[in-house]
Amino acid sequence: MATVLALAATACSSSSGGEEKATPATSAPGGLESFYNQKPSWRDCGGGFQCAKAQVPLDYRKPSGEKLGLSLIRLPAKDKSSRIGSLFTNPGGPGGSGVEFVRQAATSFGADLRKRFDIVGFDPRGVGASDPVRCNTGPQLDKFLATDSSPDDQQETDAFAAESKGFAQNCKTKASSELPYVGTANAARDIDVLRAALGDQKLTYYGASYGTYLGAFYAEQFPSNVRALALDGAVDPTASSTGLLIEQAKGFETAFRAFAENCVKSSGCPLGTSADAAIAKMTSFLAQTDKRPLANTRDTRKVTEALAVMGIATALYLKEYWPVLRQALTQAIQKSDGTLLLTLADQMVERKPDGSYSNQTDANMAVNCVDKPNPSSLAEYGTGP
Results as ranks from 00 to 15, higher is better:
Gln221Thr: 12
Thr254Ser: 04
Arg257Pro: 01
Glu261Asn: 14
Tyr218Glu: 06
Tyr218Leu: 12
Ala255Glu: 05
Ala216Phe: 09
Gly211Met: 12
Leu203Val: 15
Val235Asp: 00
Glu247Arg: 08
Ala228Gln: 00
Tyr206Met: 11
Lys202Ile: 05
Phe217His: 07
Gly207Arg: 11
Gly211Ala: 12
Leu244Pro: 05
Thr242Ile: 15
Gln201Ser: 02
Val226Gln: 01
Val226Leu: 13
Gly272Met: 03
Ala255Ser: 11
Gly251Ile: 13
Cys269Leu: 12
Glu247Gly: 03
Gln201Thr: 04
Leu229Asn: 01
Pro237Thr: 13
Thr242Glu: 11
Tyr206Gln: 05
Phe217Lys: 12
Ala255Arg: 08
Pro270Ser: 04
Leu231Asn: 05
Thr204Ile: 11
Asp236Gly: 10
Ala260Cys: 04
Pro237Ser: 09
Ala258Lys: 08
Val226Cys: 11
Glu247Lys: 09
Phe252Val: 13
Ala249Lys: 04
Phe217Trp: 02
Ser266Val: 14
Ser209Cys: 07
Cys269Phe: 10
Gly272Leu: 05
Thr254Ile: 12
Pro270His: 03
Ala275Met: 03
Leu245Arg: 04
Glu261Val: 15
Tyr213Arg: 02
Leu203Met: 14
Ala255Met: 06
Ala249Val: 05
Gln221Cys: 09
Gln221Glu: 08
Ala249Gln: 03
Ser274Ile: 13
Glu220Val: 14
Ala208Gly: 01
Ile246Lys: 04
Tyr218Met: 09
Thr204Gln: 00
Ala275Leu: 04
Val226Tyr: 08
Ala239Asn: 09
Ala216Gly: 15
Tyr213Cys: 03
Thr273Met: 08
Ser266Phe: 13
Gly233Tyr: 08
Tyr210Ser: 11
Gln221Ala: 15
Ser266Trp: 01
Tyr213Thr: 02
Pro223Ile: 14
Phe256Gln: 12
Leu203Ile: 15
Leu244Met: 10
Ala249Trp: 00
Glu247Phe: 06
Ala258Leu: 12
Asn262Glu: 07
Gly272Thr: 00
Glu220His: 01
Glu261His: 10
Ala258Ile: 12
Ala258Ser: 10
Lys250Pro: 01
Ala255Gly: 03
Tyr206Leu: 13
Tyr218Ser: 08
Ala249Asn: 06
Thr238Glu: 03
Tyr213Asp: 06
Gln248Arg: 00
Phe259Lys: 13
Ala230Asn: 02
Lys265His: 05
Phe256Cys: 09
Tyr205Ala: 11
Cys269Met: 10
Ala275Arg: 03
Glu253Arg: 03
Val264Asn: 02
Pro223Val: 15
Leu245His: 02
Glu247Leu: 13
Ser266Cys: 08
Tyr213Gln: 07
Ala239Ser: 14
Ser267His: 07
Tyr205Phe: 15
Leu214Trp: 09
Ala275Glu: 02
Pro223Thr: 13
Ser267Cys: 09
Ala216Trp: 04
Tyr213Gly: 02
Ser241Asn: 05
Tyr206Gly: 03
Ser209Leu: 08
Val264Met: 00
Ala228Asn: 00
Glu253Phe: 05
Leu229Lys: 06
Leu214Ala: 14
Gly268Gln: 00
Pro270Trp: 04
Gly233Ala: 12
Ser224Thr: 14
Arg257Phe: 01
Ala275Pro: 01
Cys269Val: 15
Phe217Val: 15
Ser224Arg: 10
Tyr206Val: 15
Pro223Ser: 10
Thr242Ala: 14
Ala208Phe: 08
Thr273His: 11
Asp232Gln: 03
Phe256Thr: 13
Pro237Ala: 07
Thr242Gly: 12
Asn225Leu: 10
Lys265Arg: 10
Asp236Ser: 14
Tyr206Ala: 10
